[in-house]
Amino acid sequence: MKKVILLLIMVSSSVFAQEVKQVPQISVIGEGKIKVVPDEALISVSVETIAKEVKEAKNQNDVIADKVLKLIKKKGILSSDFQTQRMSLTQNYDYSSKKKNYVANQTISIHLKDLSKYDELMLELVDTGINRIQGVEFKSSKIKEFEKQARKNALIDAKAKANDYVSVLDGQKVGKALLISDNSQTHYPQPMYGGMMKTMAMESDDLPRETLAVGEIEIISTVSVTFILE
Rank of each mutant, 00 (worst) to 15 (best):
Ser79Pro: 03
Ile50Asp: 05
Val15Glu: 02
Asn153Gly: 08
Ala162Lys: 02
Asn163Cys: 08
Ala158Pro: 06
Asn101Lys: 05
Pro24Thr: 00
Met122Asp: 05
Gln18Cys: 12
Ile72Met: 08
Val45Ile: 14
Ala17Ser: 12
Ser204Lys: 13
Glu137Ser: 10
Leu121Tyr: 12
Lys113Gly: 11
Ser13Asn: 01
Thr226Ala: 03
Ile50Ala: 05
Ala162Gly: 05
Asp206Lys: 14
Ala158Phe: 03
Gly215Met: 06
Ile108Ser: 10
Ala65Phe: 06
Ile180Glu: 06
Arg151Phe: 06
Lys161His: 03
Glu137Ile: 00
Thr199Asn: 12
Gly76Gln: 07
Asp62Phe: 03
Gly171Asn: 12
Lys2Pro: 01
Met122Pro: 03
Asp39Tyr: 03
Gly30Tyr: 08
Met196Leu: 09
Ile26Gly: 12
Ser80Val: 00
Gln83Trp: 12
Ser109Asn: 11
Met200Ile: 05
Ala17Glu: 04
Val168His: 12
Lys117Ala: 06
Ile143Leu: 15
Ala201Leu: 14
Ile133Ala: 15
Val136Asn: 04
Phe227Ile: 08
Thr199His: 09
Lys176Trp: 01
Ile64Val: 14
Gly32Ala: 01
His187Cys: 02
Val54Asp: 10
Leu69Ser: 02
Ala51Arg: 02
Met192Ser: 08
Gly194Leu: 09
Gly215Asp: 09
Ile219Thr: 10
Arg209Gln: 02
Val214Cys: 06
